[in-house]
């Protein structure tokens, strides 16, 4: 049995006592991240723009269903400061079945078109299926964003085969496209650490390059609002592992429930959480609002002293 399979089959209680996952107990310095031909140093904060090739995702459903609209979205995202585009063909929420063939039809030709238009842009594909990952990598994808926590254990092997990156996420042991139902954890952060680090260890084991592996606590996946707030508050524990941390916060339900607002009123909450997460050491931010997210990250970088202001003359004249 592979490590990935073992991880999936374990109950949350078993997970807390799992060993042999290669998890460093003490803090490790952050590593550089390499995607496509680019290397991103730990101080660089990256925006991953969401491009959904779906008619029914939760935020602005169908907005980039049309290929032309999707390409316009990529152009705008690049102008607004996106470092990565994340292209997905299946919504996370339950709904009409999207089979492998249809997912490939939705994503792969578009990935090829984006690759042609932007040779240096980092292209991520949001999929849990190895068949889709394989076609996407062949079309030029640089990163496999596996939001469902290694459900398909062969996906990571595709990353190794093509020399691409992989996101190791914690979906709370749920199958793809399911919602949390009364989920409970003795310690949600411990469960996230154990799960993501087991996936990262497996990625290394099958041959994915160390500098192309990220971890993602996966807010709201297999978690209620309290759990998502907890993983945000304790994000430093994930950062301390040394793996680059990706967070996907944009317009999610934990923001909506915290503020008691509908999906079109969650930008301020999303950006506030983005700032806190960046301050705690997250490095990649998957977002709908690229320009606003970029502004927040630039502010955090400047506050930390990593980047100077764009223009400072006030009081200096």
């Amino acid at each position: 049995m592979s490590a990935g399979k073992a991880f999936r089959d374990m109950s949350p209680i078993d997970m807390t006592t799992a060993s042999g996952t290669g998890r460093p107990r003490a803090g490790r310095p952050p590593r550089a991240l390499r995607l496509n031909r680019r290397t991103f140093e730990p101080c660089q904060l990256l925006v991953m723009a969401i491009v959904n090739r779906t008619p029914d995702s939760f935020y602005q459903p169908g907005m980039t269903w049309d290929q032309e609209a999707a390409m316009d979205r990529v152009h705008a995202a690049v102008v607004d400061g996106a470092d990565i585009v994340d292209i997905g063909g299946v919504p996370a929420r339950p709904g009409d079945d999207v089979d492998v063939r249809e997912e490939i039809r939705r994503t792969v030709p578009f990935i090829a078109a984006v690759r042609e238009a932007y040779p240096d842009l980092v292209i991520s594909v949001d999929t849990w299926r190895h068949e889709v990952g394989r076609e996407a990598c062949a079309a030029g994808a640089d990163l496999l964003n596996d939001s469902w926590g290694g459900w398909d254990t062969r996906l990571v092997e595709v990353a190794a085969e093509f020399g691409t990156g992989v996101v190791c996420s914690h979906a709370g042991h749920l199958p793809p496209r399911t919602r949390p139902f009364r989920v409970a954890y003795p310690d949600v952060v411990e469960d996230v650490l154990t799960g993501t680090l087991a996936l990262a260890a497996r990625a290394l084991e099958v041959g994915v390059e160390e500098e192309r592996i990220l971890i993602d606590p996966a807010h709201d996946f297999g978690k209620n609002t309290w759990h998502s707030l907890e993983i945000t508050r304790r994000l430093g524990e994930l950062v301390a592992t040394g793996w680059p941390v990706l967070v996907s916060l944009s317009n999610k339900d934990f923001v909506g429930e915290t503020l008691d607002v509908m999906v079109d009123e969650r930008l301020a909450g999303t950006l506030g959480t983005t700032a806190v997460s960046a301050w705690l050491g997250a490095r990649v931010f998957r977002a709908h609002h690229v320009r606003e997210t970029r502004h927040v990250l630039t502010m955090v970088s400047a506050i930390r002293g990593d980047t100077p202001p764009a223009c400072a003359v006030r009081g200096l004249a």
Binding site: R182, V183, A184, Y185, D187, W226, E230
Partner: peptide
């Protein structure tokens, strides 16, 4: 606290829900 980590727990194992 198994549902809401921010709330102080009972410090013991939780019974079934």
């Amino acid at each position: 606290s198994i549902f809401a980590p921010a709330i102080a727990g009972t410090g013991s194992d939780s019974p079934p829900l």
